[in-house]
Design a protein around this nucleic acid. Sequence first.
RNA 1: GCCGAUGUAGCUCAACGGUAGAGCAGUCGAUUCGUAAUCGACAGGUUAGCGGUUCAAUCCCGCUCAUCGGCUCCA
Length: 638
Amino acid sequence: MAEVAITFPNGEVRSYPAGTAVNEAIASWNQDVARTTVAARLDGKLVDVSHGIQDDSRLEPIDLASKEGLGILRHSISHVMAQAVKDTFDNVQITIGPSIEDGFYYDFEYAETFTPADLEKIEARMHQIVRADYPFERRELARDQAVALFSDRGESYKVELINDLPEDVKTVSLYSQGGYLDLCRGPHIPSTGMIRAFKLLNVAGAYWRGDERNKMLQRIYGTGFSTSQELEDYLRLLDEARKRDHRRLGRELDLFQMNEEAGAGLVIFHPKGTLLRTVIEDWERREHLKRGYDMVIGPQILKADLWMKSGHYDHYRENMYFTEVDGQSYGIKPMNCLSHMLIYKSKIRSYRDLPLRYFELGTVHRHEKAGVLHGLMRVRQFTQDDAHILCTPEQLNDEITAIADFVDYAMKIFGFEYEVELSTRPENSIGSDEDWNMATEALRQALESNRIAYDINEGDGAFYGPKIDFKLKDALKRKWQCATIQCDFTLPERFDLSYIGKDGEKHRPVMLHRVILGAIERFMGVLIEHYAGAFPLWLSPVQAVLLTVTDRHIPYGEGVYRQMLDSGIRVEHDFRNEKLGYKIRDAQLQKIPYMLVLGDREMESGRVTPRQRSGKNLESLGVAEFVALVKEQCARYQ
RNA sequence: GCCGAUGUAGCUCAACGGUAGAGCAGUCGAUUCGUAAUCGACAGGUUAGCGGUUCAAUCCCGCUCAUCGGCUCCA
């Protein structure tokens, strides 16, 4: 019998009879590794452990606990779930069921709706399947045979999937376990008995193939881990994440409300939320002025004709609100660019004037679909830290680089990591291919020359130009776009913007649309979750709270309060007739950075005793000293 | 917009086809207290809104609004 030479990860080469299964080879090499191997790479190709090795090759076991192994495990659990669903309910069709970042899902077509009680039934059946320890068996079938097989079984989605495969695909692979059969590329874990810890989480609707024109399927989400300890840890983490949900903290910290009577997607900022927002906006103004931006303010509504000229009417109308004034149609602005264009056009511009950078904390309205609204993250009225930069094509790279630096600086100041994406031309868009290519290249070059790592997001640009998106994550790991840089050759064209060049001729400027924090509302949402409401001193709406020990300390407290207000500290007082411990607890729950205790000792010496949010007490110090301390700790943000 | 779930006091949650209770918060009183909850009393609700079924609806049904989880879409 022929022999094959197998190279193991440690470099060891061993010889086996051809056809030896992957798991046998691994077991003979290292018994311990074999026990937790879920699949393997054979010369870089993913295979099941039951795969028979026919040629000399390099073999890398995939461990259950590795990221890849976990993905395979979860994918296998999704098959087990699909089996449990098929075993438990009639007239269910299976569609697709991949592993995802924190678990897996499977989409089903089923006339009834799955209820939470159904999930329990499904889980119960899954446990039986796991206990039965069915092997996952792979086989390959000619595609027409596979079509016939799934047609017989009434699985029309699987038939559609096979029919849509590229023509050169002649065979497909099928996996089965315990009477369940699925079309699947694999690999899978050896058998269902290897599954230790899983949980079904929720049911949701999902369009077949993610297309809203298609039928709505039912998606069951679940998660699985290699050990039950990890599962418990994950579930606890989910619970922690819920506690830092900005919608919950927004109420608990009295920052803002969304009110049913006011309308969906509309934020009402309470005093503390307004203070927080004001701190952020003040920071914005300072930083923009430092960087050569000019502050401007445009109107909230502009004539519909102007929105037609810009292309918004044709490409963005369904997101816009319109109103009528004296028989004239006006569009409520969904973006701030139009006024900025008009400012540019208000006089003849020279190349010496460029770049011009117009900055506006511009409030816009967008008619977002009801189902997408989400706390502060997705609203219908929001304020952008928006700017439009008009420059020559030669200045483009420097300007984009400066913006990327600004974003990076801002993210460091607020304490965020971020991811970068380059979004290219979408279907519904304006402008020539040539302009799009130039614009996209300008963005790409700026990213590359600054060595910024990025992903490409095909077809996700704005209708007028490509963009660089900067994404932040919320408590539940959902990504939100905050900063964005969009390169636009089209609007300057449509508005016939020009500048006089060195040559005395008219030239067309290029425009960059950009935001740094993005929508202030969304940014605040992410910020609240990022800090779990315990804002750093410079951002905290209330920086210090005065706590009297008894009523006789109130007059002293009033003096201290006055003094601190005068010094520009954001201070509150709690002079209630309550025990100190009670007031400390309250202040602690409000996540106030400094609690200043005022008792006999402080009153006599004219001092305050700060307690930090961390629970640590500082030495008593004079009011002026405390003010200086706060100012010093905020200095680098000013 | 689509699929599903939910909506009871300011908040968190009970209850039942016969018009609702608890804890916290609030108010009042007592207490004057040193680092995460002092005690007592009181008050608080057209059970999201509108309509229907019923002798009777918070509960059953329909519509609307809003929220939540997804999908699609986006800052």
